[in-house]
Simulated scan of single mutants.
Amino acid sequence: MASDRKVHHFEEVEKHNTTKDCWLIISGKVYDVTAFMDDHPGGDEVLLSATGKDATNDFEDVGHSDSAREMMDKYYIGDIDASTVPTKKTYIPPQQAPYNPDKTPEFVIKILQFLVPLLILGLAFAVRSFTKKE
């Protein structure tokens, strides 16, 4: 397979996603693991779940042995063109609304958030004017 080594585009690698034709991207390299599908200790499902993406994190999270890493050399078929790999999307959790146990409509909460400070300020001025000594 040494003569087949080249730079692959993600779209090409993504198409090889079956037990009869399986390619993986790990650490910027492309591996044709089709011949290893039956022998993989985790089963072929693990390898198939790593297709269609950069599987580096999946591979590293398992903690493969040095001998497993050495074995990868015989499946190496080239490098991935990094510019063709889709960027990973960062999860941004939805913004939570303030706690609203009685399910008061949002517009009422906004009005109260505006009016309550004004009422307190008005009350402070009223108290001050009534208690002011002349």
Rank of each mutant, 00 (worst) to 15 (best):
Q113C: 01
H16P: 04
D66P: 07
T84G: 13
Y31Q: 10
K133R: 15
Y31W: 03
S27P: 01
D58P: 04
E60I: 00
L24D: 06
I25Y: 10
V30C: 02
D61I: 00
E134Q: 11
D38P: 09
E45K: 12
D39S: 15
P41R: 03
D58I: 01
D79H: 08
I109R: 11
F59C: 03
W23P: 07
H64W: 08
N17I: 00
L48T: 11
F10Y: 13
E12P: 09
D102S: 04
Y99T: 08
L24H: 07
I26N: 06
I80K: 07
L48R: 06
L121C: 14
F36K: 10
L47P: 09
F125P: 02
D4L: 14
D54W: 04
P93L: 05
R5A: 09
V30S: 11
V108G: 04
D54A: 01
D81P: 06
D102Y: 06
K103A: 11
Q95H: 13
D81R: 06
E106V: 01
A68R: 03
L118A: 04
S129W: 06
P41Q: 08
A97M: 11
D54R: 03
P86F: 03
R128F: 14
N57F: 02
I80P: 04
M72L: 15
G42F: 00
S49M: 03
S129V: 02
D54V: 01
K15C: 05
K6E: 05
M72G: 08
G28R: 08
D54H: 03
Q96K: 14
S65K: 12
L121K: 03
P98C: 01
P105S: 08
D73A: 14
K29C: 07
K88N: 09
R5H: 05
V30F: 08
F107Q: 10
V33A: 12
E14A: 05
D79N: 14
F107E: 13
K53E: 10
G78W: 09
K132R: 12
D32S: 05
N17S: 14
T19A: 11
H40L: 01
Y75M: 04
M71T: 13
H64V: 00
F36L: 13
S27Q: 15
P93I: 02
A97E: 14
L119K: 06
D61F: 10
T104D: 02
Q96P: 02
S83D: 15
F107L: 05
T90C: 02
C22Q: 10
Q113T: 05
S67F: 08
P117Y: 00
N17H: 12
M72F: 03
